[in-house]
Amino acid sequence: MQRYFVELAYLGTNYCGWQIQPNANTVQAELEKALSTILRHEVSTLGAGRTDTGVHASFFVAHFDSQMINLQWDQKLLVSLNEILPRDIAIKEIVAVTPDAHARFSALSRTYEYHISRYKNPFSVETAWLYKAPLDVDAMKRAASKLLTYTDFTSFSKLGSDVKTNNCRVYTAMWEVQEQELVFTIRADRFLRNMVRAIVGTLVDVGRGKIAEADFVKIIEAKDRSLAGTSAPAEGLFLTSIEYPVNIFIE
C-alpha cells in the first residue's frame, strides 16, 4: 500500500462541513467518490481537520492509501479528477508520503483567515461577514496580541467538545485592513472546535466598544465559554495553510 496526500481547496457554502455525515452533503464524501472512480477501487480518506458547515478552505489536506504503488499523478490525471468533482472543490496536487504520515496528526501548524466586509459587496456574500458598524481596529489588534501569551483557550471552545486538552500554542494573531475588508490571521499548533469564530466574535465586541481590552484578557483567563462573544458567522472563515515536516514527503 502507498499513502498519498491530497491537497485541495473548496468553497464550503454548499456543504455540511468536511466530514462525512448521514444524509448530508460533505466535501469528504465528494472527494472519496471521485477518487474511487478514478482509481477503480474504494478509497477512504482522512482529513487534516473538521471544518464546520459553510467554512471554506483555500488549502486543505487529506490522506488515503492505495494499492497502486508509485502512481504518477500527472496533470492529465488531475484534470480528470477535477472534472468529476463539483465546481466548488478543486484538487491542487496529490503526492506520495511515508507510510506513517498523517494528514491530521503530522501537521505542525495550521493557519486560518477570517474576512469581514465593511461594505455591501455581492461578490463576497459567501466568503465574508458583512459588518458595517464602526469598529476600533487598533483596539482589536491590541486585544488579539494577548492570545500569544496564553495556552488554555477553553473560553473559545465549543461546549461539549470531546478533546483531552484545550491547550493550544498560538504563533500569530493579527488584524489587517485589506481594501474594503478586515482580515484576521491566526496560526497555531492546533485549534479547538469553533475556536477561531469564537475569538473573532469576541474581538469584534472589543472593536465595537462592548467590552474593553482588559475584559478580553479576563475572558481568556476565566476559561468559561459563556463569557466570550457570539461566534462569528461561518462564511468568513478560511483554512489557508497547513505546515508538515518535509521528511514525510517522498521525492
Rank of each mutant, 00 (worst) to 15 (best):
Tyr112Gln: 02
Ser124Leu: 13
Glu83Thr: 04
Arg142Cys: 03
Lys210Ile: 05
Ser124Val: 13
Phe64His: 06
Ile69Asp: 11
Val79Ser: 06
Asn82Val: 04
Thr185Trp: 03
Pro233Ile: 11
Val206Asp: 04
Ser80Phe: 07
Val163Cys: 13
Asn121Phe: 08
Leu192Gly: 01
Ile250His: 00
Arg50Ile: 02
Thr45Val: 10
Ala103Ser: 15
Ser106Thr: 08
Tyr244Asp: 03
Glu179Ser: 10
Ile84Gly: 00
Thr127Trp: 01
Ile248Gln: 08
Gln19Pro: 00
Tyr150Lys: 13
Gly229Val: 01
Val200Gln: 03
Pro22Asp: 12
Ser44Met: 09
Gln19Gly: 05
Asp162Met: 08
Ala232Lys: 00
Phe123Thr: 10
Ile211Ser: 01
Asp88Phe: 02
Ala107His: 05
Ala222Cys: 12
Phe64Ser: 05
Trp175Asp: 02
Lys120Val: 09
Gly54Pro: 06
Leu239Gln: 04
Gln180Asp: 11
Ala9Asn: 05
Ile94Pro: 01
Tyr119Leu: 12
Arg169Asn: 12
Phe238Gln: 02
Asp100Ala: 08
Val95Ser: 10
Ala139Leu: 09
Asp65Lys: 14
Asn247Trp: 09
Glu42His: 13
Ser226Asn: 10
Ile116Asn: 03
Gln67Ser: 11
Leu8Ala: 15
Pro22Gln: 12
Ala128Thr: 07
Gly49Leu: 03
Asp162His: 12
Gly207Trp: 02
Ala234Asp: 01
Val137Glu: 02
Gln178His: 09
Gly12Phe: 06
Thr13Phe: 09
Ile38Ala: 03
Val55Met: 11
Leu78Ala: 00
Gln75Gly: 09
Asp100His: 11
Thr26Phe: 07
Arg197Met: 09
Thr172Val: 15
Leu78Arg: 01
Ala198Trp: 01
Thr240Phe: 04
Leu31Cys: 03
Ala96Asp: 01
Phe156Pro: 02
Val170Glu: 03
His115Ile: 06
Thr127Glu: 13
